[in-house]
Design a protein around this nucleic acid. Structure first.
Lengths: 208, 208, 208, 208
DNA sequence: GATTAAACGAGACGGTACGTCCGGTCTTGTG
DNA sequence: CACAAGACCGGACGTACCGTCTCGTTTAATC
């Protein structure tokens, strides 16, 4: 995960595993203190107690480094069984909002996405390190709801995948937009409104 | 809009109005060619045939400049009456997706949002120049649907505003996430699926 | 003299004259403290209170900078009339030796000559800034000796120039070799021996 | 000669003798191709097919390595008996000039001398490896000339040594200065002029 | 023949300097 | 006063070498 292009040769001094961890931790610290745009490679290497060359030997640049540093934050998201689909959705929305309140996640996520618009390799990295990994939450939530009888089973595999993607984009996109673009708080009330909308649609009940 | 702190003095040579337009156009061109991160103030000033000092006299920095340069792109979004709510939603989704296919919008939008996580003034500028202006589309769509009887009228003004915000975040956020984070195409099929979900909710019909 | 390729454009802010002087002085200080090989451009710019870019705008690199910084040291050499040729020669030998005792001259002179073996432009710069300027001492000494009747007049101009060059190489080369290669002191005794040899040749008198 | 501090332990794998030769040859090659300042230890080790550690085990640094690599070039100088002192001097001048036309000698000699101005150990190494070894030429030439009756015998040993040193500095210094500082060719004509001056002194004959 | 201890290749490591680029400010002269 | 031009200070960039350090692998001399 951490490195760039492993030389895989078995001769020579092996790369320090401790350095990887120190660098990623230093990167997160620097993101908290400085934010994306003022984070510098030199500063990260200094914080990690590591030479700049060591850093560049493993990551091609700031973008790749930050994606890896931030990706694992998303692994903390969980989906405990709250008994019904509404509660599960509301819970994951609030968890995600809490994550987006962390300064390192706020500043880094949008920045790497912005950079990725011009860099296909970075785009792939984001997808594999963040997006695809968190789709597990949607998959799990759907299976659970289907087991409860709250949602019908998908007969077709391809349709199931497209639905997973759609739900993921709706939930993640809406929360990110609320939190970072509209800059409004994601609180319990809003989470309930959003969950209701997601459950019943615009025409469903009152609409709010 | 363009300037930073109006000098308001009535004496001396007045600022060139042509310069503003040239600078914003140059900024958009540079965004297309270079993307956000490689765009430089010096380059913009050179493209615009303007001295760097002239540029800094009007905008405080790259962030402010790019917000202004990009904001007006969003004004091109329209909401022609397609006869029913589904069609109106689907249309605005596809329009927004087309906008996000423009390189200057792709690269700039996420970048300024990323910067805004650490800069309240920039956050406000984004909100007033982009977010709030485009909420008109939701307001208009809702009013039209209510006139058609597709949606109930909101008795309470505050609730109406919260609903507007929510719908805006859902639509804009989901499309942005699909296009820029998941990096998947927003085509007619997807737009239809998303619209269906938005109309009827997860429990509504088939769920896709 | 100081700069590299004067832009000669008359618009824009003119280059600071004070910066040139500060840079050359800083260079000499750094040579004294650090010697040629540990002198860095960054250190010079810091000592001079000047940005690195300012330094590179005027000199192409360390070599060119040091030649200019050191060249003017050689202008301190003088040739007061001591009454006879022997005394004049002995005096200039001792002056040159004193100059080569200065750390900045010692370390810089040989270093730039070493670099010049691979850089024709630097070779020319050394010749014009140092070598040719100091030949004046030989020319003056010869004229004075000829006036005194100690040396015959040269009928041919070309021969005169070749003789000037030869004498210059003998005196300067011998002193430099004694001081820097053989690493032996150039004291009064040695200066007298050398002068005697130069006057009368190996076969002349005792030979020492 | 090659190594730094002999380990003298009698057990363990002995140092490869072939490596020494390969390293010195690689150093000379690199000097020819790159010159002193662009020669790097890593490059030398790669050319020699040797690890950097092997190189550093034997030489303390670039300076020491280059002195050793270049010193033996000077051993090629010889003093065949040309029948008279003038001819012998002229011959050695031309030989030395030919040596200074070799790029590895040109670039290395001045560079190590420059470095030696700040490094007494290097100064000693140059003196013992180069200077003192070549004084044999002066000693031999003097003895031969004395045997021919061209020069008087020195009664005093100390005076003899001082004279040897002086003549060495005059010849070596002048040729080096002509070739490397003044950057003028050392051809037959110049060699004859210099020899004449050395024989008869400024007052001797015509002076050129 | 087994042991042993150093030399060896490979290459990662913490540093330092490089020369370039950009950000933002300032100082000219001109309009 | 605005403006074009461009010099200025500061600071980060990504690269190149430095000299050191770990690795696993030879290679002789000693046992």
């Amino acid at each position: 995960m951490p490195n760039e292009s492993t030389p895989s040769g078995r001769t020579g001094r092996p790369r320090s595993a401790a350095a990887d961890a120190a660098i990623l931790a230093a990167t997160r610290d620097a993101l908290v203190e400085l934010g994306w745009s003022k984070l510098t490679m030199g500063d990260v290497s200094a914080r990690a107690g590591v030479a700049k060359t060591t850093l560049y030997r493993r990551w091609a640049g700031k973008n790749e480094l930050v994606v890896d540093a931030v990706a694992e934050l998303f692994d903390s998201l969980e989906l405990p069984d709250r008994g019904c689909l509404e509660a599960d959705v509301e819970n994951v929305v609030l968890q995600f909002a809490a994550l987006l309140r962390r300064p390192e996640a706020r500043t880094a996520l949008m920045a790497v996405v912005a950079e990725s618009t011009r860099d296909p390799a970075l785009r792939d990295r984001i997808r594999s390190a963040i997006v695809d990994r968190q789709k597990r939450l949607v998959v799990l939530g759907r299976e659970r709801a289907q087991a409860r009888g709250e949602l019908p089973r998908e007969p077709d595999e391809a349709v199931a995948e497209r639905t997973t993607d759609l739900i993921f984009d709706v939930i993640a996109g809406t929360v990110v937009h609320r939190a970072l673009v509209s800059s409004e708080p994601v609180d319990d009330l809003w989470a309930a409104s959003f969950t209701a909308l997601l459950m019943h649609g615009l025409r469903g009940s009152a609409g709010a």
